[in-house]
Design a protein around this nucleic acid. Structure first.
Lengths: 234, 234
DNA sequence: ACGTTTGAAGACCGATCGGTTTCTATTCGG
DNA sequence: CCGAATAGAAACCGATCGGTCTTCAAACGT
């Protein structure tokens, strides 16, 4: 019933090394596997970002990735598995993004670093991660799987923050708390601004966050030096 | 086919005021209406809190409320309408809760007020509101409707915050930004702790937030009074 | 007391979901 | 070059979804 000729499986390939014009031939199985998995995860990311976790159906994911249902279920046993793999991927990209940005700045001010952080939290990677985290609250299976992925992710974030000068003043747990606090703030803002944007307040909030960080530094500095210091602290 | 006798429509009601034993008779139409709407919204709140917005199907909502599908659609034209009404209700309850708590405290410290605020953001009312806000990001209809409901809600929150002493020093837009920042932080924390709880960090975060708030109040206090004041500010 | 209106029930409908099965195409191992 | 194993496509399945329709009961207006 079906016309298989459209696939045109092999228009002859006379010798071994030579390939026909533009026809990418003889991919290895692992290559095939990795490209389709990559296409599926890329599609999942963009679909979740667009329609949310709950509405990211396998139908639209397959459609957008160009992979069939059968193809999907060859590599992922369930929708949950696909989502967990997607979570790991967005986490990895988020970390890479952060390290790259901080690396490009030679002497980042706190405000600059925070602005980059805030903008990162508005990107697809973090939006998808957040969608997954919110869904995990009411989905026990996802919650278990995501908490494992999250452990690594959250630790990596704090590690990356060490690239910012000034952070060496903080012990690990204090820095972790500070970084997480900022993440929470930017996550919450990113959600709220979808229904009630307020760019002016966002700018002021960024300055406030920078002041908070400086407040903590000052506080720690004073705590470690009980004797009063000269007022020429410019 | 159905046995209507179980309903026992009217076992006679001889005179006007007298009712039969324990049988609640002759409710007015408006009463009927309000109670079933109330039951539906209560059920919607608890179901969203349990299984999330996307999985809060009309089936389980009807089941839990004890109202039939037909009954539901008499009062709400669509699931969206029910959700919007639910949003308004949780917003109203959240505000009432906040005002009641702050009113009970006679001289609330910042730390006390912040702890109450944080705990409120872990309650059903706020969890449901947050679920709706997250869903609104990817649901255009819900976003439009919720942004209208939100305008009032967000304004009421800032109004309620005026009950905290010290806030009178701040102009409206500064206080609004400050309050919203705290809301974002507590919202983000409330989500994160579902998959990665860290009670120690939560306590420190609360203390530091309070210290920072006091710092801001002090700074503004000094700014509004350019002349130095006696240091006996206990 | 009685016809009208409103509230509530529940069977029913098409659409869509995640997942399975069946079958074909491609790469692999020798 | 050829069987075996893997990748991928697509028809298919039962369950469930939001929403409608028909029907009966209760409250209302007069």
């Amino acid at each position: 019933m079906v016309d298989y000729a459209t696939n045109a499986p092999s228009t002859a390939e006379p010798h071994d090394g030579q390939v026909a014009l533009g026809a990418p031939r003889r991919r290895t199985q692992q290559e095939r596997r990795e490209t389709t998995i990559g296409r599926l995860i890329d599609a999942t990311i963009s679909v979740i970002a667009e329609v949310g976790y709950a509405n990211a159906s396998l139908g639209v994911i397959c459609e957008r990735s160009g992979v069939s249902r059968g193809g999907l279920f060859r590599h992922f046993d369930s929708r949950l598995d696909l989502m967990v793999a997607t979570a790991a991927e967005v986490g990895k990209r988020h970390i890479a993004h952060a390290r790259r940005q901080l690396g490009e700045l030679r002497a980042p001010t706190i405000l600059e670093a925070l602005r980059l952080m805030r903008d990162r939290h508005r990107n697809v990677e973090n939006v998808v991660w957040f969608e997954l985290m919110v869904a995990a609250r009411t989905d026990p299976d996802l919650r278990i799987r995501l908490s494992e992925t999250g452990r690594q992710f959250f630790a990596d974030i704090v590690d990356a923050a060490r690239l910012i000068p000034g952070t060496e003043l903080f012990p690990a747990e204090d820095l972790e708390m500070l970084v997480n606090t900022l993440e929470h703030t930017f996550d919450g803002e990113a959600i709220r601004r979808e229904i009630a944007p307020d760019p002016v307040a966002e700018d002021r909030r960024l300055e406030l966050a920078a002041e908070f960080a400086e407040f903590l530094i000052m506080r720690r500095f004073n705590a470690t030096k009980p004797a009063d210091t000269p007022s020429t602290t410019d």
